[in-house]
């Protein structure tokens, strides 16, 4: 519950503060958000599996974000930033869907 409240607090803070994304962060933020989303779905999956662990969740969240940013940075340096970003988004999207499927199987047996 508190976690959900935290989500809402974050969204409302973003809406109210209208933060402008700093220029150096602009290429990384979208990928970081998708990576974090993947970590969140993984966390929910662990939750319904009964193996949720806050440390693992924390580490996977931060790790996902950092690795995603690193990949984008590396791609930018190599000149394939756009393609690599697309690849990361695709992979993370697949993971999100598979996590979602696992959650669904757990909850609905279907």
């Amino acid at each position: 519950m508190i976690a959900t409240i935290g989500l809402f607090v974050g969204v409302i803070a973003g809406l109210l503060l209208q933060p402008s994304v700093p220029l150096w962060l602009q290429p990384y933020l979208p990928i970081a958000v998708v990576a974090a989303l993947d970590a969140v779905f993984g966390g929910v999956r662990a939750l319904v599996d009964g193996i949720f662990d806050d440390k693992v969740f924390f580490v996977s969240f931060i790790g996902n974000v950092l690795v995603a940013a690193l990949i984008v940075y590396l791609g930018d340096q190599l000149g394939v930033g756009a393609q690599l970003s697309t690849g990361v988004v695709v992979v993370l999207g697949i993971r999100i869907f598979s996590n979602m499927a696992a959650i669904r199987r757990r909850l609905f047996k279907a």
């Binding site: 519950m1 508190i2 976690a3 959900t4 409240i5 935290g6 989500l7 809402f8 607090v9 974050g10 969204v11 803070a13 973003g14 809406l15 933060p19 994304v21 933020l29 979208p30 970081a32 958000v33 974090a36 989303l37 970590a39 969140v40 966390g43 949720f52 662990d53 806050d54 969740f57 924390f58 969240f61």
Partner: peptide, 20 residues
């Protein structure tokens, strides 16, 4: 602790998403 960790991380996620 798990709830608090989730809350913090989800707040960060929400904030980042909204900002983006």
């Amino acid at each position: 602790r798990a709830q608090l960790a989730g809350a913090v991380l989800l707040a960060v996620l929400g904030f980042a998403t909204t900002a983006q």
